[in-house]
């Protein structure tokens, strides 16, 4: 019996274990036949599974775009829901190939935490939500307030810095999961709840009376959210980075999911280079030359993904703001594809 059970355990280990990166991540992903993507456990607009396990969100679409660039099929991706505190360990251990989990790009994460950031798919900032009945108009009025915050995030540190800088105090209540944090705020345990502004809009939807809560105007931090990969794999880093830039360039050039097939016939040299009808840029990345075509075919351009998941086409109704293209007054700027 002992031997049988040991054998069983070993067998289960062998079957459950996925082949992780030791050579190049790209080769590994190709060999596995799918992309393993670290995502949020449940954040509307960014990464949220429904009861049937179908994932939606801006980050999720990013993962699909990478999968499409590699396989030409946006469905060849599997998601690993990660809590804030587990995400870097999961990336380091090779459990996920790429971490697209509304993760803030900071210097310590980009260096000592063993991750590499290259692109920003959402420029965010930390904000506060309070109950309307408190009649608070600004975060500076929150002196002495009890504030709910999620553990293991840059949010926790920004909050401290902001109150220290403004010489006001607060009482923290720190939860490990986002569900508990929102619930505690909603029940009245805390006067305010703080997280990235996009998250505030998402969490407000889940409160028992969304209309009774108001997001304060202050944005107290810079939160450039982007995909992270393991350090030391140049090739893979570039694929992840250029996936984002391809989506941006597509928006700039007006290439959409709907018209991408038509655009193949375009005479515009920029469009031709993007869609691979001219030049061999895809091969340079270790992919095929129609890599960007496949991305756009699968998830559309950046603007489409934005509107569908967090913008006007979603429940969140977040305006483009600083996430608009540079040509429209925003910060999203793609290096040229040439």
């Amino acid at each position: 019996m002992k031997i049988k059970i040991t054998g069983l355990v070993v067998g289960a280990v062998a079957v459950l274990a996925a082949n992780a990166a030791s050579a190049g991540t790209l080769e590994n992903v190709k060999q596995k036949g799918f992309l393993q993507c670290g995502s949020n456990t449940s954040l509307a607009g960014f990464g949220l599974p429904d009861a049937q396990g179908n994932w939606t969100g801006l980050d999720v679409d990013y993962c699909r775009a990478i999968a499409a660039a590699i396989f030409g099929d946006g469905t060849k991706v599997k998601f690993t829901p990660l809590a804030a505190k587990d995400r870097f360990t999961a990336l380091q251990s090779g459990e996920v190939d790429v971490l697209v989990r509304n993760t803030t790009w900071t210097i310590s994460r980009d260096t000592t935490n063993g991750a590499t950031f290259q692109a920003v798919n959402y420029y965010d900032g930390q904000g506060f939500i309070v109950r309307k009945s408190l009649n608070v108009k600004s975060a500076l009025e929150l002196n002495g307030a009890t504030i709910c915050v999620q553990q293991g995030t840059t949010t926790e540190l920004n909050l401290t810095d902001y109150f220290r800088a403004n010489k006001i105090t607060y009482k923290p209540v720190v939860f490990a999961g986002s569900d508990e944090t929102t619930k505690a705020y909603d029940s009245g345990r805390c006067d305010a709840f703080t997280t990235d502004a996009s998250g505030l809009f998402a969490e407000r939807l889940k409160m028992s009376k969304p209309e009774d809560n108001v997001v304060l105007p202050e944005i107290i931090s810079k939160e450039p959210l982007g995909p992270a990969v393991r350090q030391g794999d140049e090739k893979w880093t570039k694929i992840v980075m250029w996936t984002h830039y391809a989506m941006l360039t597509a928006e700039e050039l007006g290439v959409t999911k709907a018209n991408v097939d038509e655009m193949l016939k375009s005479t515009n040299p920029d469009v031709k280079r993007l869609l691979g009808t001219e030049g061999k840029f895809g091969e340079g990345l270790g992919l095929t030359n129609d890599w960007a075509y496949k991305i756009i075919k699968a998830v559309g351009n950046y603007g489409e993904a934005f509107e569908r998941n967090v913008g006007q086409g979603s429940q969140l109704k977040i305006a483009r703001g600083i996430n608009a293209l540079w040509s429209k007054g925003g910060l999203q700027y793609a290096p040229p594809i040439r």
Partner: peptide, 19 residues
């Protein structure tokens, strides 16, 4: 187990979270 098991095992094993 969650944080350290993946470190102690050969990287290509990469045990599943549930495991």
């Amino acid at each position: 187990a969650n944080f350290m098991l993946p470190l102690f095992l050969p990287p290509e094993w990469n045990p599943d979270r549930l495991l």
